[in-house]
């Protein structure tokens, strides 16, 4: 069965980009436009991997991760932050919130794919 990847980003272009990269490799991609929509999706879709942006309206990525980790649906699911933010403090904050990893934008397709394989199998 295809593994589901949840992409949370307020930019549809980014969501599309991730989808176009992963879908040909057998992942099923679903999107959400902000953290709070992401939580709803997380509970509904049981994804094998979550890729989330950091700066988003309504609920940002860090908050999303915190909520997700406290939720039965989010425990143990790999959550990768996908962001242009490069500051170590932000990275540390993400990690302490419970993020599994970190991908910097811009990313390339191979990189994204290898991360998906590494974390979702």
């Amino acid at each position: 069965m295809a593994k589901t990847v949840l992409i949370i980003d307020d930019s549809k272009a980014i969501r599309d980009m991730v989808t176009f990269t992963l879908e040909p490799h057998g992942y099923r991609c679903v999107g959400a436009g902000d953290g709070s929509e992401g939580l709803t999706r997380l509970r509904a879709e049981n994804p094998a991997l979550v890729i989330t942006d950091l700066n988003m309206p309504v609920m940002n990525g860090i908050e999303f991760i915190r909520h997700a980790r406290q939720d039965a649906a989010g425990a143990g699911i790999p959550i990768v932050m996908l962001t242009t933010e490069t500051k170590p403090e932000m990275k540390a904050e993400g990690k302490s919130a419970g993020a599994t990893g970190w991908i910097n934008k811009p990313f390339d397709a191979d990189m994204l794919l290898s991360v998906a394989k590494k974390l979702a199998g």
Binding site: D10, I14, N55, T84, E85, K105, F107
Partner: peptide
Amino acid sequence: DAVFRTLHTVKGSGAMFGFGTLS
């Protein structure tokens, strides 16, 4: 914050979609 987020989004996406100069 909203301004920052806007710029951030354009920067991040720009580089990925072949708008490096913009980014």
